[in-house]
Write a protein that binds this DNA or RNA. Sequence first.
DNA 1: TTGTACGCGTTATCAT
DNA 2: ATGATAACGCGTACAA
Lengths: 350, 350
Amino acid sequence: MPNQKKPLNLKEVSRILGVSTATVSNAFNRPNQLSERLRERILKECETLGYHGPNLAARSLRRGKSDVVAVVLADSLSYSFSDPVASQFLQGVAEVLAQHNKQLLLLSSQVGGKEQNSAESLPDGFIFCGAPSGDCEKRIMRLGKPAVAVDFQAESNMKVVQIEDQKAAKNITLHALKSHRGNLAVLGLKLIESNRVCRLTQADLISEQNDVAHRRLRGYLEAAEETKTELQPHMVWHVPVNDPENAEIAAREILTTRPLPSTVLCMSDVLALAVLRVAKSLNIGVPEQVQIVGFDGISESERCEPQLTTVCQQSIEKGRIAASVLLDPEAENETTVKTDLVIRGTTRSA
Amino acid sequence: MPNQKKPLNLKEVSRILGVSTATVSNAFNRPNQLSERLRERILKECETLGYHGPNLAARSLRRGKSDVVAVVLADSLSYSFSDPVASQFLQGVAEVLAQHNKQLLLLSSQVGGKEQNSAESLPDGFIFCGAPSGDCEKRIMRLGKPAVAVDFQAESNMKVVQIEDQKAAKNITLHALKSHRGNLAVLGLKLIESNRVCRLTQADLISEQNDVAHRRLRGYLEAAEETKTELQPHMVWHVPVNDPENAEIAAREILTTRPLPSTVLCMSDVLALAVLRVAKSLNIGVPEQVQIVGFDGISESERCEPQLTTVCQQSIEKGRIAASVLLDPEAENETTVKTDLVIRGTTRSA
DNA sequence: TTGTACGCGTTATCAT
DNA sequence: ATGATAACGCGTACAA
């Protein structure tokens, strides 16, 4: 029986060592409240006794803070781990949390249930990554704890970290059209409520929604208008999920449409990479016959051939910033993360 | 002031509603302990009052369980999010946890400090993903809670989920050698203690270590021996981190060595993909001049050209299994996840 | 410098 | 069916 059925607690330890609970607690939390010698002895004894250190539940209950930070993902956790952008964002968040000795609890705004509700009471702060679904935002914000909204305009009063989607989308489109005027197609992500790849209608196109997809779409449209390039609704595709499977279905549709669009504007690199692969398989020259531009700047976008022209949104850095902003009470209420237009091989040089 | 500075608690709610705390608690946890009508009323009132539901710290303290599961990663969280295999594993874990209404806390065995120590006391169970560093395993196992070891042989008494690394490595090597005998090179991961890409020595080669890398290496060596193919230590490379940057450095070394190895055995797909890219850039024909085999079966391995011959280890499924095994007290003590030899374009057809 | 005692928010037991 | 109360493990004000 190597494991005691019941782990030691602080009171038990203090009894064994013949000191008070306060002293043991102080040994862990307030070094200056006792002699160096005693502190050393206590910590060493805890080690040999097998005391694991102050229990989080009790400690959090008593102190009113837990040193746990939650990231609330808009999609399911399972999906988020498969998405390169979400993964990079988490990478940045985790890096900063580790530096500050904070623990990471992952939540999904799609999950309800008592358990998640209960779990939401633990963290000291929240990072909302993408617009949460349902009443998740309201529910959490009622707790009155610090929070950061990433990539969406929060209803509640919290700090915001975002990029300029519309501007970036416009600029990359202008770049592509500068090299080569021609007919446009858009590969869009979650533009409408449908779990099928499909094209948009005129009504869809003028939606005033303020999510990431519609902001980028407005950027594309703005650039099209400014250059007197037509961009018709039936040349705008909706893709329900940002994964290679859905992306390839849409890519195949686009590239088998005639006349062939001369430039395909993609709302993510995952989409753009699918277009690139399908173009190769159909023997369509990139960028000679079709230019492709992406969005995000995931690492795979520089490992393909030709490399992808895209908007690098520095997801890792965005994660770092989100965490820093959350942890720093003095931080600005609104932080705009710079995006970089990365010109590579899938657009023609001007 | 939309937010009360202090969120409501159960006692306060019970006072406002004029019932006892027990009744409110029962409304949340034991529906059959009160009338349907009263329960409905209480839950509705909690909603309108803005009560967030039972506090996790208090609830966990009292019940002795939290409905939180921890995944303890061998590497830093930040690195793990960048690693396709770890991400896929987490994807599988998250999927099953969500089905069981469990929350996911991410820990790293590399992190010490009071905060992590404290956090470790919260979860009801642990999934160790890769061999933990330091005394992390011992420390956590003293808590006497259920745990699962993934991809390593635990010192403590816990359930194990693993693949047959050695056998899989041997088989893929035999496949490659069947198509084409020739001189071998190995691109290995974390074979020795060095943060530089470098080659091994004879002494390194016969190490008895039982980590993933050495198990795979033994598989390669076994296949080499069985086919009377020489595999010399200076043709075995050590790569310290499984990322594209380190991988390319090593790949370049390998492919500029003469005589050119006719088959490069890579311990991960990330490594293999780097070899493929470098081979292209050096105009080395794959698989005509060099065969490449990977390990893992990450999704990028089927999107490259030619597609990668590799060992698919079903990381997502492994994650699902690890979580299921943890949550099911009746589960087998040892589960071996099947690997699939996936023959694709980077090896010659026999 | 050290010890005592109360309370953090909840749940389970027991009584009504 | 509902209520009163002790206990979960800890941190800290205060007393010594």
